[in-house]
Design a protein around this nucleic acid. Structure first.
Lengths: 347, 347
DNA sequence: AGCGTCAGGGCAACCGTTTTCCTGATTTTC
DNA sequence: GAAAATCAGGAAAACGGTTGCCCTGACGCT
């Protein structure tokens, strides 16, 4: 019953298949690929011979002839990490559906390794390259004038002509603020990561503008720090000690938000009744681990990976897309912004 | 200055290099590969021509002749996740150093996808396959009688003849208990994941045996639940409500440990003074986010990935290794088991 | 001067597959 | 019934690179 591939021991070639079926290799090729004009009976005979031998066409030989490898390279510039994974999954998804295989290259933020990988990928004649990674800023292109298309995913290229797919972080920040406004909060503050990080300024600016559009001002000056729970706790302390009158915090990451949540909770503030909380990243382990579960902005990394792969496929097929494409974010509401049905007295 | 690969536009072939250098293609090949006997001057001339044209040998053509592709497939059976990443990094590390490229395949726990990927990898004539993934039990082999070597990493094959590299989880549990004993704890309890999970029983058994070897009994019956912070908090509640007299908890995961830490802390127990805590996985975000920072068992996933890759390379080179190899764990001490210098009064 | 030796490098086969061109054989058409 | 059209399948070139074999010419030796 369970034969699967158990009969493949030594890989067989098409000439062996042809010999077994009593035809020439050319005919065998046509039979297996549905080309040429063959008697149905012959075609069948070849197919059965191929089946019997467990024949799988040698991709190298095939690509040598066709010039295409149905293979792409994926270079992660920083190490494979939390952000790269969904990107890779999304890309692998779209590419796998297109029968493409993916070469994985982890450049670890080392330009030498990166150039080495680019050379390797070119020698393997990949049909295209996807570059992913996390950076504080747009990155320099991996190389000028490559013979294959390149798409940047999540990270963006500093050359505006290059094709980049990135999250619309301003959109994400806007959604966060608008959600807080929609549940009636007005005294909102932003706690986020290091100021030199591009994402940080984009999000902070968009948040401020969204408030301003409603005629509101931040309830306190934006707090910049690092991407950690510890900073979130510290920030909560700062907010409490300055006695700022706030009813919502929009955080630059879920980790920060979780820290803020802990800090506020331990000071006796109820979330979401006293202070509503919105995070950023929608990182499952953080949003679920937080108490209460955290409303967060999802950048749809998987979608970004998928889109990047689709654009790459399009470019490979002769329809290159240039410039940067920003994909909208999504707000995932959870308990940290759930307005209590009945305000009631504090317990 | 910054030429890098800017001159490669259309990939050039060795015959173009040969023509430019004024030699035959065979000679050019020998010059570039250090074969045959050539005048140093000729060799240099060819090398310069290759440089000038940005020549990179077509890997497909080369492998067609040599039969080797310097390529391996890596199949993750469950989705790419927290466990797969370090494994992949480790494997990629060892393989990259051996000039091998890695095909990434995410089978998503779908046997159909998995078989599809196996076929694809075989058609691409990979030199070997690494299978990784997380499972509650050993898995059935991906396929019988493959023409290339296979190594299982982290996950193990149910066929004892197959080569598997796994963490020695019993060793990890032993180290955890011994560490707790070493800092003077005697009333130890184990809080862990679902009982049907193979890892859970292995760790629990080893923990119990280590205690027994010291003539001790668990301070409470082992608590089985799920791999979540919520379960950790719940377990803390159970321990507190039953009034069990404990001075240490060994947890089956860092998430559980973090939950336990929160639960105990909120009940006024001091960690590590009243209760010491050891987690499992050494997952950075958990051990750092916990308060206090969590002592944990590191399974050295990267080392497992690296070892698996090395064994695969050995097999490819004709030295196959059979059977299961268990790598020791490592205890990483942090504040949650740091014995206070001065017991002093509680604050 | 003639022969042997060896370095240098060209030639061609080969890897496995696809595809074009071509040849017989069969069928259709007038 | 003969010419034309169609069909089935074979032969061979091509993809790009490597390598064993062989040829050529220069040099050294007697």
């Amino acid at each position: 019953m369970e034969e699967t591939l158990g009969n493949i021991v030594r890989p067989s070639t098409i000439s062996e298949v042809a010999a077994l079926a009593g035809v020439s290799t050319g005919t065998a090729s046509k039979a297996l690929n549905g080309r040429g004009s063959l008697r149905p009976e012959t075609r069948l005979r070849v197919q059965q011979a191929a089946e019997q031998l467990g024949f799988v066409a040698n991709a190298a030989a095939r690509s040598l002839h066709s010039g295409r490898t149905y293979t792409v390279g994926m270079i992660t510039t920083d190490s494979i990490g939390r952000f790269s994974i969904p990107l890779m999954i999304g890309a692998e998804d779209a590419l796998g559906a297109g029968q493409m295989s993916v070469f994985l290259c982890d450049a670890r933020d080392d330009p030498i390794r990166e150039q080495y990988y680019v050379r390797t990928l070119l020698s393997r004649k990949v049909d295209g390259i996807i570059v992913t990674g996390r950076r504080t800023q747009a990155r320099t292109p991996i190389s000028a004038d490559l013979p294959v298309p390149v798409v940047y995913a999540f990270i963006s290229s500093s050359d505006p002509q290059d094709c980049s797919v990135v999250p619309d972080e301003a959109d994400g920040a806007r959604r966060a603020i608008q959600h807080l406004l929609a549940i009636g909060r007005r005294r909102i503050v932003h706690v986020t990561g290091p100021e030199h990080h591009h994402s940080v300024t984009v999000r902070a600016t968009a948040a401020a503008e969204t408030l301003a559009a409603e005629g509101l001002e931040p309830a306190s000056t934006t707090l910049y720090g690092e991407w950690s729970e510890a900073w979130g706790r510290q920030a909560a302390g700062i907010l409490l000690s300055t006695g700022a009158d706030i009813d919502a915090v929009f955080c630059g990451s879920d980790q920060i938000a979780r820290g803020v949540a802990e800090g506020l909770r331990e000071a006796g503030r109820d979330i979401p009744r006293d202070v509503a909380l919105v995070g950023f990243d929608n990182w499952d382990v953080m949003v679920q681990g937080s108490r209460p579960a955290l409303t967060s902005i999802d950048m749809d990394l998987e979608g970004i990976g998928r889109t990047a792969a689709e654009l790459l496929l399009a470019a490979v097929n002769g329809d290159p897309v240039h410039g940067q494409r920003a994909l909208p974010c999504r707000l995932v509401p959870r308990a940290s912004t759930a307005v209590p049905a009945d305000p009631g007295p504090r317990k």
